[in-house]
């Protein structure tokens, strides 16, 4: 196949002639189409996928423990734990009787759609109502790769500071939900909620926010209700 119309001669030196080829391809197109395929399969199965992103130590695993406990009896939930190495998070979850699977990325800083699909298959996600990906602790790379999730949530703990949306605009601009964790420590920090929301809404107007504490349980009920509504609406959409 010789694409003549896409090519023109752009210069000559003594022996060689350069040609310019128009490529116009998205480097991440493969991942985007994998993600879309995964979403289609999950839709068929009625499994809602949520992608959780945050910095290390923001309390992802503790919040998931609280959430799944709260959803017990209402939603069949499973968790994919992604870590560069170790399985301490999965041990915490399975120790609490939660269906969880460890994905070791071996140095890779994010989860892509192919890895998510593999993990979900091993977790037998088609039998679940809700699958949660606990992405690698990192506010940079996970934001650039679509995992196939229906919604993306970011957890930010108040000890990290209220200027994070200014420093990591990409992750805060692509998320559908922000959980402000460790809210019980608010008085011990310089974190100002109005300033955080101002920074956040500038890159993502009207994004849903919950103030939570994995330690005291504050806000977990509200977050659980939000998830239940999301999953039920999604499953009804499937039935229609």
């Amino acid at each position: 196949m010789y694409e003549k119309e896409n090519e023109k001669s752009i210069g000559k030196n003594s022996r060689e002639e350069f040609r310019l080829i128009e490529v116009k391809e998205d480097i991440l197109a493969d991942n985007k189409s994998e993600a879309q395929n995964l979403r289609n399969r999950l839709k068929q199965a009625g499994t809602y996928l949520l992608n959780l992103m945050s910095s290390p130590g923001s309390g992802k695993t503790s919040l998931i423990l609280q959430l799944v406990e709260n959803l017990r009896g209402d939603l069949k939930t499973g968790v994919i734990e992604a870590d560069i190495d170790s399985s301490v998070d999965t041990e915490r979850l399975t120790g609490a009787g939660i269906k969880a699977l460890q994905l070791r990325t071996g140095g890779l800083c994010h989860i892509d759609a192919v890895m998510a699909a593999r993990g979900l298959e091993a977790l037998e996600a088609e039998l679940l109502d809700l699958a949660i990906i606990e992405n690698i602790g990192n506010l940079v790379c996970p934001a650039e790769f679509d995992t196939g999730a229906f919604k993306n949530a970011v957890i930010l703990s108040v000890t990290e500071g209220d200027d994070k949306p200014r420093k990591y605009p990409l992750v805060f601009s692509i998320c559908d939900l922000v959980l402000i964790n460790k809210i019980d420590l608010l008085d011990y920090t310089d974190f100002e909620l109005p300033r955080f929301k101002e920074n956040l809404f500038k890159v993502n107007p009207g994004v849903e926010c919950f103030e939570v504490s994995a330690r005291t349980g504050q806000g977990i009920q509200e977050w659980s209700s939000w998830i239940k509504k999301e999953v039920w609406d999604f499953q009804q959409g499937k039935a229609q």
Partner: peptide
Amino acid sequence: CEKFNVVKGKEFYIREMKVI
């Protein structure tokens, strides 16, 4: 107004290549 949606700035495109 103080609220904005990010509409561009996330591209990852190969525009063209020069070959022999």
